[in-house]
Design a protein around this nucleic acid. Structure first.
Lengths: 128, 128
DNA sequence: CCTTGACCTTCCAGCAACTAGAACCTTTAT
DNA sequence: ATAAAGGTTCTAGTTGCTGGAAGGTCAAGG
């Protein structure tokens, strides 16, 4: 399989796949003309990466998860711990965003949004 | 005021303040020794930036908001529109994160997290 | 056989918003 | 006099790609 086929199946852009090779996440073989040749195993890895990234795991987490995925002797607790840490991080981000959301919602409600200059949003942003 | 005093009052690290000068958000005067000298107006701007950034506005949004803040003839609708767009973006991000959160929570629940290798998390990540 | 177009390759640059660190200068206190 | 604590500039690194240029390869049509 050539890169654009793999891109279609895995859901990752060709550029991203090349980048993943650059940083050592996959090592596709090369044919005599220099083209990358992807085997079933490469495709599995890329699909795995695509899904892991979609769940928000960092590249370094993905690297670790991929190694565990390939390690038949892994302990599921290792995987679970990574997922748990990531989940905690997500919860933190959601909380941050919700706090912004609350503040902004309130400010927007109190702002007339007309052609006059008085603006509670700016007032809040400049409050000391 | 020197940079570290301004940093303390505004809540922004000195490095960030220098960076904001680099990209033209503030233009503090210089004293004869080359040190930046911050006036009340600079401080107001930096506080404004600190708070805007804390609400998640992009630097470019901050630039626009700052210009509106300084423009006595602004229309509050301009401010409101920027805030509204930003709020929509925040809502989108929260939705994305919550979707990840839901998936991960479920997966973590179903994973034993022991020393055995079978792991529903990896199973899910590698599902085609 | 030649050309065209769709592939593929590498490499370099840039995005956001800082941050770390090096090398150096100035001020302040002892 | 000197040492610590500030200030300065500069370069480069972070994360995870993405765009574009310059060029090689391959399959189909005239």
């Amino acid at each position: 399989m050539n890169i654009s086929d793999v891109a279609e199946v895995s859901g990752l852009p060709p550029k991203t796949i090349r980048y993943y090779e650059d940083i050592g996440l996959v090592r596709p073989a090369r044919s005599s003309n220099g083209y990358r040749v992807f085997q079933a195993n490469d495709l599995h890895k890329l699909t795995f990466l695509s899904r892991s990234r979609a769940l928000g795991f960092s590249i370094e987490d993905c690297r670790t998860l991929l190694a565990l995925y390939e390690d038949e002797g892994r302990a599921s607790s290792e995987v679970r711990e990574i997922a748990q840490r990531h989940l905690a991080e997500i919860a933190r981000k959601i909380a941050d965003l919700q706090s912004m959301q609350d503040t902004l919602t309130h400010l927007i409600k109190t702002c007339a949004g007309n052609d006059r200059p008085d603006c509670p949003i700016l007032d809040d942003l400049s409050r000391t």
